[in-house]
Computed example of a mutant assay.
Amino acid sequence: MPTTHLLYLHGFRSSPQSMKARLVAEHVARHHPGVHWWCPQLPPSPREAMDMVMRGIDPWPRDTMAVIGSSLGGFYATYVAAMTRCPAVLLNPAVDPARDLARYIGDQTAWHDPAQHFYFQPAFIEELRTLEVGPVTRPERIFAIVAKGDEVLDWREMSARYPGSRVRLLEGGDHALSDFETKHLVDVLRFLDPV
């Protein structure tokens, strides 16, 4: 079924202004104007973020919706896909953010606007743990792009998290997937088959 509703979930300290989010938004607007696009600014609290997302997509048709998630957004997208059984594209997805983000407790700045501050609370670590969904039940509905050159996350963990799924393992690359527009954008949209 072609995708009619597309959700994009950004990463930790990121925003809808991220390079990849803007590229997908522009591509969808230009080539797939019939697709309902939503890329919300996620609050720092994982529980609040997923409550907001699940409320927002509640009226969406489960058989024609899809989700894209980058980094922490990839972890969130895995949760959304598990809850809705929709297809998901994961871009260098966080596998164990409860472990990895424990060292970021405290005052943080937004990546795209350093003047914006937020406090990453210790309670958020447990909130992340409650969003862990275990093994993927529909691996064929997941496409993960994983860069061996990711300077933030371990490519071995990322690629091992999604057995049976389509995993594009990049020999180099970086956490931001700087070559996203030229090397991956078209394939991401092809996998999701937007109307």
Rank of each mutant, 00 (worst) to 15 (best):
F120W: 13
D96T: 14
N92P: 10
A147N: 03
H112N: 12
R103N: 11
S159R: 07
F143D: 01
I105K: 05
L153M: 07
E151P: 05
Y162H: 08
G149H: 02
R99H: 13
I142S: 02
E171T: 02
S165I: 07
A94P: 06
A147R: 00
R168L: 08
V167H: 06
T109H: 02
P163G: 11
L153V: 03
V146T: 05
I145S: 10
Y162T: 04
G106I: 01
P139C: 09
L128Q: 13
D113P: 06
L90N: 08
D174Y: 00
R161S: 00
G164T: 03
K148A: 00
E157P: 01
E126H: 14
H112C: 10
E127C: 14
I125C: 10
D154I: 07
A98Y: 12
G106Y: 01
E140Y: 12
A144P: 15
A98F: 13
A176I: 12
I125G: 09
Y162F: 14
D174M: 03
Y104C: 11
L91M: 15
W155H: 11
R168W: 08
F180D: 13
G172W: 00
S165D: 07
L128E: 12
V133N: 10
E151Q: 14
L170M: 03
R168C: 06
A160C: 06
D174K: 00
D174T: 01
S159E: 06
P97K: 13
L170H: 00
D179N: 04
D179Q: 01
A160M: 06
Q108A: 03
P97Y: 10
W111E: 07
I105F: 06
V167L: 06
G164W: 02
D179G: 02
L177R: 00
L170R: 03
V95S: 12
L169F: 09
A147K: 01
P139N: 11
L177H: 05
G173Q: 04
R103K: 15
T130D: 14
L128G: 14
P93S: 10
Y162K: 01
Q108W: 00
Q108E: 00
A160N: 11
A110S: 07
E151C: 07
D96L: 09
P163M: 07
K148I: 01
A98W: 14
Y104M: 04
A102M: 10
R161C: 04
G164H: 03
T130R: 14
A110R: 04
A98C: 11
I142M: 05
R103M: 14
R161W: 05
I125S: 08
R138A: 12
S178Y: 09
G106H: 00
L153N: 05
H175M: 12
R168N: 06
D113Q: 09
L177K: 02
N92Q: 10
D113K: 03
A144T: 12
V136K: 07
V136Y: 05
T137V: 15
V167I: 14
G134T: 08
I125V: 15
P93T: 12
I142T: 07
D154Q: 07
D113E: 12
V167S: 06
I142R: 05
A98T: 10
W155P: 04
L153S: 03
L153T: 02
I142F: 04
S178Q: 14
H117L: 01
D100C: 04
A160S: 12
P93E: 13
D113M: 04
